[in-house]
Structure formats: C-alpha cells, structure tokens
Design a binder for these strands. Sequence first.
DNA 1: CTAAATGGTTACTTTAAAACAATTAGCAAA
DNA 2: TTTGCTAATTGTTTTAAAGTAACCATTTAG
Lengths: 336, 336
Amino acid sequence: MVTLKQLAKELNVSISTVSKALNNSEEIGEETVKRVKELAQLYNYTPNKVALSLKQNKTKTIGVIIPDILNHFLAKVLFGIEREATKRGYNIITCISNESLEKEKEALELLANGSVDGFVLCVAEETQIEGEVNHFKRTIAKGLPIVMFDRVAHDVLCDKVIVDDFDATYRATKSMQLKKRKNIAFISRINDLSVGKLRERGYNKAILEESNQEPLVLNLKKKDDSQQKIKAFFKKHKNIDGVISADSSSGIIAINTALNKGYKVPKDISVIGFASKSVSNHSIPRLSIIRQHANQIGANAADLLINRLEKKFDEEIEFKTKIVKTSLVLSKSTLK
Amino acid sequence: MVTLKQLAKELNVSISTVSKALNNSEEIGEETVKRVKELAQLYNYTPNKVALSLKQNKTKTIGVIIPDILNHFLAKVLFGIEREATKRGYNIITCISNESLEKEKEALELLANGSVDGFVLCVAEETQIEGEVNHFKRTIAKGLPIVMFDRVAHDVLCDKVIVDDFDATYRATKSMQLKKRKNIAFISRINDLSVGKLRERGYNKAILEESNQEPLVLNLKKKDDSQQKIKAFFKKHKNIDGVISADSSSGIIAINTALNKGYKVPKDISVIGFASKSVSNHSIPRLSIIRQHANQIGANAADLLINRLEKKFDEEIEFKTKIVKTSLVLSKSTLK
DNA sequence: CTAAATGGTTACTTTAAAACAATTAGCAAA
DNA sequence: TTTGCTAATTGTTTTAAAGTAACCATTTAG
C-alpha cells in the first residue's frame, strides 16, 4: 500500500501538500495538484482506513450482533443491513451471539474499543429469558448508539425496528375464521422469544373473540423432533382444520405431516405460517406465508443507526420505534 | 473511552510508563505497576483498537466475501468462519457480493485499504462464468492473503478449502445403483457453478459405468418454478426411480412432487440431495442428504488464513488445498 | 514593501517500544 | 567517614504508524 509519505518523497514535496492536493484544497497550485493526482492514480493510492479512523475518531463501521446466522429470517435481515450500510459507505463487523448472553456481552465489549461507531443487534434468547439489559445500557453510555431489531429490550432507550407480530397472527387467524375454520391450532418453536409470545397472543385474541372457539397451542422445544410432535398433535386433536405457525419450519412440516396422514390441504386443514418465499416452496401446495420483509427491517435498522451517527452535534434525535408491517401472502395451502 | 494519556495525567507519570506497566514490562517498578493497573481497572481501560492497528500494521480483522447470505450452506460456512476467527481473536467484516463480479471487486478494493489483514471468500457466480481472476491476483500482490472456499479459482495461487463434490455424487449415485435403481436422474439448480459441474460429472461417471444406463439431467434456472419443472420432468420420464440433487432445495421439492404425483418414496423413487439437516425435515420421509460440513469448511478456511497471517517472517508456507469430505447421511427417502 | 499565492511545519489522534536519562544503591578507595 | 564510580533500577523522551488541518514561512508579483 502506498502512503502519502511515499508519494511526497517521490514528488519532493511535503506530506501535507500531497494530502491537501488530493483533497482539492485551495492552498495548493493547480500544477502541483495535477502532478500529485497523477502519481496517486498511477500508484493506485487510497487513504489508509485505519489512520483515518484514528484521526477522525470514527470508523465508518457498524457492529452487527445476531443470535443465529442459520435462521433464515436473521440472515435476510443481515443482508438488508449489509446492503444499506454499503450503500451509505459503512462496513459491517458481524458477531454471532449464538443466543447466549455471555457471547452477546463479549461481542459488545470487544467492539466497543473503537472498532465500530455503533451497533445493530437482535437480542439473544438467553438475554431475553434472563431479562438482562445492563450491557446494552453500558454500551450506550459509552457513546455507542444501538439499534435493536425484531427482538428488542423494551426498557432500553434506543432506536428499534420491530414487526407487527401481534397483528400479523391476529389477522392471519381472523382470515381463517372468515373461511369458517372452527378449530385453528397454533404451532410455535419460538415460545421463549418475545416475538413468539406476541404471535401467540395475536392468535389468542382472534380465537377468544369467537365465543365457541378455544386456543389450541403446540409449543415445540429446540431439541424436539418437530415431525413427530406435530404428528402426535394431529393425532390427539383430530378436528383441527387450520394451523397458524410462528416459525419458519413448523408450517411446512405441518402441511407435510397433514398430507402424510391423509388430510387434504387446504380442504381439510388450512395452514399459514411465518416464513420466507423460498421456504414456502418446500411443500405442495405451497405454504401461505406471513412475510416479514426482513430486508426492509435490516435496511431500516441500518438507516436509523447511520442517521444517528451522522447527525450534527446540535441536533437531538428522539428515539424511534419503527414497525415494519408484515404481509399475508396466501398460496394454495389456504382456500381463496 | 479512557486513553493512556488520561491515565498518565491522573497518575502524574508519562504515557509510556502507563503503557509499559499495563504490558507488564520489567522496566517499571512494582508499586507503579500496581497503581497504574488499579486506575486502569477502575476506568475500565481497554487499548484503542484503531491505534493498535495503526501501530502494529495489522487489524486482527478478516474480510469475508460471500456471494449470497441467504444460501444456507454459505451462511453456515460464515458461521464456521466467525467462530474460528473469534476463537483466535479475530473479527470478521462481511461483504456480500450478490454473485456479482463488480461487487466482488469493489469489496476487495474497499477492504484492501488497511481495513483487514486478509480475505476468506467464495467466488461469485458471475466471476466464475466470466473466468475473471485478476482482482484476486492484485489483492494477493498487495500483500493480502486470500483463502477461497467451495467455489474456487483454480489458477489463483492461494489456500483453498473445497468439497469432494465429484466423489460425493459419484458415491451417492453408486449407492443407489447398488439398490438396483436403473433410472437415476440428476437435478440441479447450480449448473453455472464450478461445484455444480463437478457434481454432475460425479453423477455422470457413476451412470456411465453401468453399460445399460444413460444420464438424465434436469438443469433448473434461478428464475424457474422448480415445482413445475420437476413435475413436468417426472411426467416426461415416467421410469425415474432415483434422484440425485445438487442443491439444497431440489431434493426436497423432488420428494414432495413425487408424493404429490402418487409415487411412493422411497419405494418407487429414491432421493438423495446436497442439503443440510434442518432442510431435510421439510419432507416426509426425510431427505437423505450429502452433508458438506459447512461449519468445518468455514473453520478450516479461517484457520488457513490466520496461520498464514501469523507465520513468522522467515517461514514460507506452501499454498494448501484442503478437501473437506462430505458424508452421506441416509434417511428414509432411500431404502436401507 | 506588502500581500497574495503556495507550500512547509507542526500538532494531533492512540499506542508501543527503542533509545535515552535520571536516580539511587552498593561498593571500593582515600 | 566520605567521596567517587559503576551498575541496576526506574521512568521519560522520542519515534513511528498514516492521515488531516491549523498555523506558519517562503517566494514572487505588483
């Protein structure tokens, strides 16, 4: 890598002349500017990012902490974050908390030593279960803004981007009720998460609004064999005619299990699930999905953070909570 | 963030005394060391990463460029890279090339300005199609080592981590032939990729070793409706009794399509596909998979890079190509 | 001789370490 | 006992990493 120093030496001028010439300062003569720029081009000079960061006390880098990269939704959000960040001239440093509070803490502390200007993160499962928030507060107190997405800690003052989880399942359930479904079950593998609970509540509300319906919920654990559990669930509750699923796999597995047991989908059982378009292909008929627009969530989160990072000194920005609305995309796993 | 300077001022000693005391230098008195360490602890001092990077001319950061984060395999490799890197004290900066040559070039150049010490990457599809490699060579010439994984550019001298793609499909096909399958088809949505081609060749070899068998290949385009194409394929070739799939979705869709058409799986049609364990759940019976050990691939790639970064000046390490062997994990979509 | 034009010096960001300086202890000689 | 020297101990100064920018210096034109 060429440095200003080397260019200066070769041109027989001072370092600052080179710097100023490259930054189009008025103080440097036209001729000199030209000479400098030509040599810089020749050697493919680019300012050293690290020196710049040190001098300007900002890194143009965002720390992203996600609990699980294998979660398709989170991966997609990451994609959205990356794209928006890149567009605005930022890089992202990614850490994976693996749903662990300890790792989340470590990642925050590791990157809060000048490596990044701020954080975009999704709270780890363990953190949510234990209700721990001090590490977030400490980071913010250090002057590093945080934007939380999807799973958020409500008692931390920061920007947030969330999904209308409650509404989404409420509306999905309602839409099934409109088609005369009377025994709609709710299947979830994310009962420990804040969003999982919200989704269940949305479902519950819709069910309880019908005087003759009762909630019927199957909560799966991470280690459970979903196929078996769902199969047993269907066997126990023979009158199920609809399924709302809260995570990206349960819906698909529900359809396949129902088909396997001889039910017709959607005639006998209608299914709607939180999932992405690509996963919806994994069943025939295709799963009707609640799309979360993960891309947008990521883009919004990055946007909020960068806006805060680039605000002028005098302006105070209030903390915003942005809700990205889900869309119900009906495919053939539900009757039109 | 507290700096050495602030500590030094408060302690009435020089900056370097503080620095040395914190680094357990022999040159500083026991008493002073204690005083310094106590204050540093009190203020929660951590060395500024950026200043350290500048001074030591290394960032302890790896640039990771992946073509597609929504690809489950690639996401899993990223996970492996992240874990290994974290374990060895490195951070990763992630860029997504979106399968585009241009973006890949940009990412390389963007990060080659001192942001990272080296790269771990998977070659973008467009790059493979166009056979462009100069941007890689330029980066290596700048002194930034590259490790390529999965899709690699063979005429670039660097460390590589690959999968035994050819062998994997060869063995999978052979295993079906042993079970008396006579009309085994090959379905792929990644025909443009080097690995896709290798997988097809492995299949071809096994087929052509049987005098009375002919290759039967379905290449899907990205924009195709896989369900429809596969359905049509089955309709056209009614005697298919086995399917080998090269990508993570086709196998699942093949099973579901076969079931939908009334075939019994595995009795009438046996299916084996490249896929991950979690996806194999998306069919009943579960898809028999060729596991690529994406985690290990990532860990190996990070390992190779870090070893090279941390080598002593005098030692020359030869460029290695590590092959991570796939495992054939048979589930109920194939007969035992 | 002054002022505009141009470019150089120096300071600053943070850290580490080589080189150097100051202090003091210990010991020997007067 | 006192002086002087060496060497160990302890700490400071300086340099270096790459960059920007405030401030200062030189040159030349008018």
